[in-house]
Nucleic acid binder design. Structure first.
Lengths: 238, 238
DNA sequence: GCCGCGCTGTCACACTTTTGTCATGGCCGG
DNA sequence: CCGGCCATGACAAAAGTGTGACAGCGCGGC
């Protein structure tokens, strides 16, 4: 899984720094904002996975900012953890009322902070819809995460699984290696294009039952394509 | 059996207080929420056994909140009693349509309230609490809270028991470690993903009679799965 | 109260599978 | 027939998983 991005909103630099160090040790990407305005921009532009929001801030307080987010459909379900000073602890209930998903009182342990962030991200990540994809007797079942041909299980590594899933969702359409890299591997990943060939080969090998490897077609000088037509055993050249 | 937890969702403090007194006299644990947002958090975190939900609330109304719960798999079967003012009585039909299990009009007697809650809990819980789950000769008996293979008892810790129960209720389906944390451990728990591996191992070890440990399958790069298919290949004679 | 016991979560390390890269040789189209 | 493009097998690094050990905790017996 790719690294998660956390937005830190606090007007005091020492606190931001401490948070940043703690979060980066826990393997999060951090963005900082020193006031509500900046925070709003970051939230709109970067869509962080979670926001750490200071309760007390000059001008627009964290409370007000959160209230605004909760009214907006885009940010309504964005996970937010409130940071409160010890003295403000009574406000916990109010914080939850307003819509914070969790709150942490300063001072706090980096460990606890990371744990809570992970837990919150964990429970707010929506489960993917489990679909069943089929092509002839080839079946990809997302709920059990299995692939089978005629009921016989096919063993695939995670990457080949994602690759096949992508192909079966986008059939009869040719993709360049770069497009495949972006869609299957992820946006910013630095992998040699030729590596695709290898994975295509592995996928074909795994699918070589009843000729299902023919579904994965080479488009010379361009890339690859998943073709349902190959199942009918008719080789139609277009 | 431990005391039942009831969540009270109402924006008016006097009513909450009265409900709370009434429920505590009837031996229930109470949690309060003053609005939809707060209620949502409590439902997610604490999994109350039953919810008392006010029909009229500012912002997100009880009706809307209930509709949301009924759409969500986690909360789909959670018992909910709607509270309506006398004047709104006409809406009772709508309330039941939406998915409330019962409704009570204010003002009401504490005794009636307690009685209805008990009735509802009684009819909601045994459905799943008393069931026996089996897979081949593996038997999980919820009433005695025991697990056995071929009649030979299997010793499991509470966590491994819940884990197995969850798996047997959701067979042939792959779950990520995060999903297992949410479903078996609970939403508000902060533990490492890798801890799951350890519990899986303990469960496998306990089930390693006649190859039943093979039911717990590793889905590399994803998570784990309980597979009934793994049973078939061990022995066919019986 | 004190002790031992079982259960949990975490860690470090061994082990397995997966993955990206390379070199080689075959195939296709012009 | 040639130059590019692709398929293939091998391989080492990386990622993911299994496992034993261990300390903290809560609980019941004594």
């Amino acid at each position: 899984m790719s690294r998660r991005t956390v937005l830190i909103v606090d007007d005091e630099k020492p606190i931001r720094d401490m948070l940043k160090v703690a979060l980066e040790m826990a393997d999060f990407d951090c963005i900082e904002a020193t006031n509500a305005q900046e925070a709003q921009i970051v939230v709109t532009d970067r869509r962080p996975d979670l926001v750490l929001l200071d309760w007390m801030m000059p001008e627009v307080s964290g409370v007000e900012l959160l209230r605004r987010w909760r009214r907006n459909e885009e940010t309504m379900n964005m996970p937010v953890i409130m940071l409160t000073a010890k003295a403000e602890e009574d406000n916990t209930v109010r914080g939850l009322e307003i819509g914070a998903d969790d709150y942490i009182t300063k001072p706090f342990s980096p460990r606890e902070l990371a744990a809570r962030i992970k837990a919150l991200i964990r429970r707010s990540t929506p489960a993917e819809a489990d679909q069943q994809l089929s092509a002839g007797n080839l079946l990809l079942d997302n709920s059990s995460r299995t692939v089978s041909i005629n009921g016989t299980p096919v063993s695939l590594g995670p990457t080949e699984y994602r690759l096949l899933e992508f192909f079966m969702n986008n059939r009869n359409r040719a993709y360049t290696r770069n497009q495949l890299l972006n869609n299957v591997w992820g946006a910013n990943v630095y992998i040699d294009e030729r590596t695709i060939d290898v994975h295509i080969r592995r996928l074909r090998k795994a699918l070589s039952v009843d000729g299902y490897e023919n579904c994965i077609q080479t488009v010379r000088g361009f890339g690859y394509r998943f073709s349902e037509a190959a199942l009918v055993k008719s080789d139609t050249s277009d």
